[in-house]
Amino acid sequence: MEIFIEYDKLSHVIRSNFHLLPVLNRFGISLGIKDKSIAEVCTDRGIQTDFFLAIINTFHNEDYFPETELMKFSPVLIIGYLRKTHQHYVDYTLPKIEKLLSNLIASCPDNCSDLKMIDSFYRTYKNELVLHIKDEEENVFPNIIRLVNKEEGSKPDFSILSFEQEHGNVDEKLNDLKNLIIKYLEPRYNNNDCNEFLIALSDFENDIKDHARIEDKVLLPKVKEIEMGTRNA
């Protein structure tokens, strides 16, 4: 798959993958970009071009993940992007998925106990995810930033291990949700409503996988590295 470079036009990037639109928004980029290149748009808006490229390329291409390149960016920069992503999930993506799920349930002609079960399962998943995001926003990220700024008492009081494990649980449930609907749920609903729900779910899955990968493969090693440094100093 294509790797975008700084001379590519941003309009080309968008046409290649519309799923990158929310990623651009997280950097404060909206449409109406004329024929500007990636480098031009980034310079105009004070965005670090190589960081922007690293983020859109890893998002666009599942097999492209230049760990060393990504590791050179400041954790503060990475956390800034991750926070924007959380905000997008909480303010837009999850409410949208819920709206589509309630459309799906409403499309079922009778009492639909099966779909209600799917609904409970979704809510379990969502509660877990929201707690995970809250923990990152309120504990993990502030701790990392304190660590980077070498503040007094910045010994991390969060467990890196639990941070890593939780991604597994959250991914697992999302995948189970998809499988339950695709493989085991009686199709007593409107097909279009179900398709829309599954497509939104799967777009979200791709987005959040990329997000978790940045946390696990870039942010965590980075923090471990800084921790080692402060300990030796």
Binding site: D114, M117, I118, N169, E172, K173, N175, D176, N179
Partner: peptide
């Protein structure tokens, strides 16, 4: 066999079936 890993996912499967 089922492609379902979480306990609550297995519960939903068991109820559906």
């Amino acid at each position: 066999k089922l492609g379902i890993k979480s306990i609550s996912g297995l519960t939903v499967y068991a109820i559906l079936n």
